[in-house]
Amino acid sequence: MTLHLDKKPLEQDLTVVDLKKLAYRMRRQIIDMAVSAGGGHIAPALSAVEILISLYFRVLRINPEDPQWPERDRFILSKGHGCCALYAVLAERGFLHRDALKTFCQDGHAMGGHPEYGKIPGVETSTGSLGHGLSIAIGISLAAKNDGNTCRSFVLLGDGECNEGSVWEAAMSASQFQLDNLVAIVDYNKLLATGFIKDVMALEPFAMKWKSFGWEVREVNGHDINEVSRTLNEVPFAEKRPSVVIAHTVKGKGVSYMENNPVWHYRLPNKEELLQAYKELNEGLQSLT
């Protein structure tokens, strides 16, 4: 099917309560997408919801009516397996029609379990294999500097992704090239597919690693939309240096039995578990009204 632009107006005036409600809706959409597709990564998408809402509703200079606008900020989901959250926020922001979400992982459709460039409006580059997005963003940022384009590149990395050596090749070059138009965000949910990252391949001292690679580092609660937005709107944190935000998050956030439990990296809920998830999300939503 063709993916149409949603013609609704920009939602710049949403309050933080509106955005918190949106977070509950998006979590429900993420779960529904994966369940109806019979596959997909739920928990790694749930940890990134508030980060994506902050970016798409408070930070990125974008125009859903013109996804190829040359001056737009670029967002790259380097942890491509979190794509349900990206598709959901693109639909909420008007890049996609909400009905397009129903095509997720369906036979013959473009919206797969990892996002692909050229097939989905708002997806800036194909990702899925980890450790690629930061380098691509560096290329975009270098071109922008040379062209006098004021756009910025934002890249969301997984914490497990930071085990990849290519992330650190990229990190080294971003500071060498003084890319203060580049922002990395790490969804630090502390879990890999097979266990806790500290037990499998530890990242700590994580902030120190980025700092020693020449980045200016901030740490935030990745589920606090105000804190994430405020911090991202302060970039660059230092002139001529790339910025990184380490967002402390909870994998599977919003569904109690998924939270901090490694088995939910790519597992799907059964009927009973699904109802439990709906119930918890509904209760959360109700508590805001």
Binding site: E124, I136, A137, G139, I140, S141, L142
Partner: peptide, 8 residues
């Protein structure tokens, strides 16, 4: 990767 970004 940087080259790919430049092409984009």
């Amino acid at each position: 990767g940087v080259a790919a970004g430049l092409v984009l």
